[in-house]
Design a binder for these strands. Structure first.
Lengths: 255, 255
DNA sequence: AAAAATCGGTAGCTATGGCTACCAATTCAG
DNA sequence: CTGAATTGGTAGCCATAGCTACCGATTTTT
């Protein structure tokens, strides 16, 4: 498992991984990914180097299809994908696989798991291409033993923001999922878009397939319902454009 | 709205609310609630007082049925219910109300919203009895301007843990909700219980009504499905006791 | 510009599951 | 100990929505 890899890395000279970052080669490779990482938002490029020295990250390489983290593992580090591509997926005992997210360079994983007490990693992370991952110790991010580095505060801010927003997103998702009825889900989505875009003439940010997927309904069923709502004079639509005709009726549908 | 109340409070002498905490009367009332609050876990009772002096909380009182926070409000503070009882609820435009959580003394609210960028409060908090609420500024918890207080680190740890665990719970909920088919949801639930209890003979922690509610299905539909599963030799059950007969079959059902 | 792929709409069939109603068993209260 | 209330099982009806299949329109590729 990945965990073995991290441990191996630890047993090496402590400064080894940091050293390797400091020689320009490796660092240059990492910079673009690190700059994109939300965890490091607001930290100047020049400071990144010093910060990494303090964070003592472990760098691990994975081959294509190698497992980075296994569902059920305990997990002490936050991962940042530096290079390559990975997927977060659920695997049933039957072997059916369901991809939950794709990770691109700069993406974070494990932020939630790592700070929750005795929670096992709920999904498997697997490299889809040869990939490089940076592991950050959860305590080091907070700066448990570090009094001198000023940017720990920025990291904590970012971390709180990232996890909070993940939670808010999940909350929103639960809301959509618990709404009874396809029409209800659609109405809720349209009203949310209305709130966001401020006009009754909406541009849908998703195509039909993605929207159906997001609401967890089948595409034809959704199309049918949209057609019905148009018949009943609630909305008019053409492709990605939807105009809400009866705002009140829509909000009445949502529980 | 609540926000006005907090502002009023701010316009008073800055130390006013803190003062009032320091006179024993008010403080004694608060102590039991504060000790239960997860945000303060691991902080000694003696330290609580000093901590509150640094955090400069605002104390607000609410009458029965008064609104503490309104859906859509921006919100800069975390709330701790000290006395009374409150509910977090969703209100549709139609006026239908749905209680999401009940808050008891010591319970926190707003932790997620407050650290997510420009997120509006997704639900309304309303006092069900005459209640007292302590509001903590989000920056003060992190200790933005405070170098001296050592327990900021504990608070940050607790905060990260609380929000992470909330997110993990939501994640679990999404999992259950996205499973297609009543049988799938049931199987997933039973397998989770199996993992938790370690035996194939389970004691369900919920009665049928609660379980149906948790899985977002109707009680009769669930009973029917359970009966079918028994017919097919997957499980045997009687009231709260369920014995799993075919573990593999169950896990095959869950996607 | 033609071919291919993607995207969206529609139809028909059917499985799923929600709902009401009712009954049996168990638990609780007086 | 008896009546009431809660809890769980069952039946039947029917709305919802999933699925397959197919078609036309649009976009992309070559």
């Amino acid at each position: 498992m990945c965990y073995d890899k991290i441990k191996q890395n630890l047993q090496q000279n402590k400064n080894d991984s940091v050293q390797s970052i400091k020689d320009g080669d490796c660092m240059k490779e990492m910079l673009p990914a690190l700059k994109k990482t939300l965890l490091f938002a607001g930290i100047k490029e020049d400071d990144l180097l010093n910060m990494l020295a303090c964070l003592q990250p472990k760098v691990c390489h994975y081959d294509k299809n190698e497992t980075i983290a296994l569902a059920g593992d305990g997990f002490e580090c936050i991962g940042i994908l530096i290079k390559g591509e990975a997927v977060v997926m659920k695997e049933s005992a039957a072997g059916a696989r369901h991809v939950m997210t794709m990770l691109k360079p700069g993406d974070l994983f494990g932020e939630m798991v790592v700070y929750a007490a005795n929670s096992a990693w709920p999904a498997t992370v697997q490299a889809r291409e040869a990939s490089t991952v940076l592991f950050l110790d959860r305590e080091k991010i907070i700066g448990e033993r570090c009094q001198s580095c000023s940017w720990h505060r920025t990291l904590i801010h970012n971390l709180l923001k990232i996890i909070s927003e993940r939670a808010m997103m999940l909350n929103k998702k639960v809301e959509y999922l618990t709404i009874r009825g396809l029409r209800g889900k659609l109405s809720a989505f349209l009203l949310d878009q209305y709130k966001k875009q401020g006009k009754i003439e909406l541009q849908l940010p998703l195509n039909r397939n993605e929207l159906a997927d997001f609401l967890h309904v089948s595409r034809p069923s959704m199309s049918r319902e949209m057609a019905r709502m148009q018949e009943e004079g609630l909305i008019v639509f053409q492709r990605q454009t939807v105009r809400i005709l009866n705002l009140k009726a829509l909000s009445d549908i949502v529980i």
